[in-house]
Design a protein around this nucleic acid. Structure first.
Lengths: 130, 130
DNA sequence: AAGATAATAGTAATCATTATTATTAACAAA
DNA sequence: TTTGTTAATAATAATGATTACTATTATCTT
C-alpha cells in the first residue's frame, strides 16, 4: 500500500513537463529547487516506483545513465551519436517484428526493445555549416 | 599500432567457443585458468579493443552487466525474462525499420539497436510441467 | 489527537567499469 | 642476440550509477 508523497508528485510533474528524457541526476537537481533537502536515493526510489506503476518509462541505452520519460504513450527514441541527446520518434509500434522473430525462435517472444542511432537535426545543421 | 598479446588471443578464442554471451567477469574467471595472474582490467581493455576492431560484439541490455559475443555475423538476441539468459536469434537484418524511422524524424537515422524479450525454450518447458 | 507504518534524508555500500602506474613482454633495429 | 622502444600487463585505486540501511518524519487511519 503506497502512501502519497509530495516529493514523488513533484518528480512526476517535472517529468511530464520535460521532453528531453532527463537522468536521475538532472531530476534530482531540479526537484531540489522545491525540496532543497531531497535525497538522490529518494529520487531513484520514486523513479522506480513510478516506472513499476507504469506512470513513467525508463530508457536504458548502452551509453550513459538511465533516462526517464514522462510520456507513456508508445513511441520510439533516437540516440544522437554526436551530442548524446535522446529524441522522440513518433512512429507506430513495429510489433510485427515480434511475430517475425517468433518464427526463428523455439521459445516465446513477448516484446522488443528498440532505439535508433543517428544524428539529431541540430547536429546535422552544424555539420553542414562546417 | 597494436601489439600481439597472448592474453587477448585467449580471450578471443574463449569467446569464439562460447555461445551464451558471457560477461566480463565470466570471461575473467575462465581465462584465469590459463593466465592465473590476469587482471580484470586487462580483460575489460581487451574486450574494448576487440569490439573496436570488430572482432567481437558487445551486448548491452537494461538488466545486468554487458555481455560479449564472439559471433560477429549479423543476428539478434532474445533476453529471457525468466532466467536472464541471452539467446541467439538468427533473423535477417530488419534494416527497413531504419527507413521507416527516417520518415518520422527530421535528423538522420544510421542504425538501430534491438533485442527481444521472451522466454527461452528451457524456461517454457519448465512452465508447462508445473 | 494518537497509533501505525510508509516515505524521507543522510549516508554507507555495492556493482560494473575505467584510470593510474610501475613493471613486463613484444617487436624492431643494430 | 643483445639493446632500445613502446605497447600491454598486473595490481590497485578511483569513478559513476545505483541500491541498501537506518533513524526520523510525514501520511493516513481510527
Amino acid at each position: 500500500m503506497t502512501k502519497h508523497s509530495r516529493q514523488r508528485e513533484c518528480i512526476k510533474e517535472f517529468l511530464t513537463n520535460r521532453f528531453d528524457h532527463p537522468t536521475a541526476e538532472t531530476i534530482y537537481l531540479n526537484v531540489k529547487k522545491e525540496f532543497p533537502n531531497i535525497s538522490l536515493g529518494t529520487v531513484y526510489r520514486n523513479l522506480s516506483l513510478l516506472t513499476e506503476h507504469g506512470e513513467i518509462r525508463k530508457l536504458s541505452t548502452s551509453i550513459g545513465p538511465d533516462r526517464f520519460d514522462g510520456n507513456t504513450a508508445p513511441h520510439y527514441h533516437v540516440l544522437c551519436t554526436q551530442c548524446g541527446g535522446v529524441l522522440d520518434l513518433n512512429m507506430e509500434s513495429i510489433d510485427h517484428i515480434n511475430t517475425l522473430a517468433g518464427t526463428k525462435f523455439e521459445g516465446e517472444i513477448s516484446g522488443h526493445v528498440t532505439y535508433f542511432l543517428g544524428k539529431c537535426p541540430e547536429c546535422l545543421k552544424k555539420e553542414i555549416k562546417n
